[in-house]
Design a binder for these strands. Sequence first.
DNA 1: TTTATATGAAACCTTTTGGTATTATGTCAA
DNA 2: TTGACATAATACCAAAAGGTTTCATATAAA
Lengths: 110, 110
Amino acid sequence: MPARPPSADAQPVFRALADPTRRAIISMLAEGPRPIAEIAAAFDMTRPAVAKHLAILKDGGIIAVEAKGRERINRLNPEALKTAADWLGHFDRFWDERLAKLKDVVERTS
Amino acid sequence: MPARPPSADAQPVFRALADPTRRAIISMLAEGPRPIAEIAAAFDMTRPAVAKHLAILKDGGIIAVEAKGRERINRLNPEALKTAADWLGHFDRFWDERLAKLKDVVERTS
DNA sequence: TTTATATGAAACCTTTTGGTATTATGTCAA
DNA sequence: TTGACATAATACCAAAAGGTTTCATATAAA
């Protein structure tokens, strides 16, 4: 077990998480895949701006884009979030010792 | 239970986590409190640059600074990281159903 | 008291970020 | 085929981020 959390390539994930609009997009896509126009309609900014955020989310592997006719369907890829969650997981023993132990059990029985 | 994760004031925390140097500082401080000079010595940048990173970490509540003589001791405050971990926790059912259930148990028996 | 040390603070610079507007392209529908 | 629609792509801009150098201040030590 390493003493410090792995840096991995967590960078594009943490970078994607740093913007509140992008976190809101993640929450929205957790409810189901959506085309760009539908996402953009929910925010007070232009569609190209939203498209840029989607590009950054895609760069972090957080969403996958699938062409469907003239639409581009954006689908959440939650596994990418695990990279960030795992990094933070190295510290959660500080605030919840019991949870850390349960996680150990879960990982051992995998 | 809300359908979407709370936005809370996760912003300063996620912002602080977005930089690799700052994440490395967090890892370092997890091993114990340190003065600025000692932290700066571990990175290939000037002390004022590191001081700026520490200011951002402090802004996110991730570290606490305590004056001790002419030194300023930086101490990790892991509870602040829980804000980010909780946000991500709303998604971890996607990648580990069992862990999510265990977390429910932990939270119910608190 | 003088000197060295630890830090704070300001000014400055370059790159990145987050947004805009505009134009171009591919696809569906009449 | 023509027109409307969904998106891509480009150029542009202001502000924030991440770094530097320089100078000031407070404390410790000689």
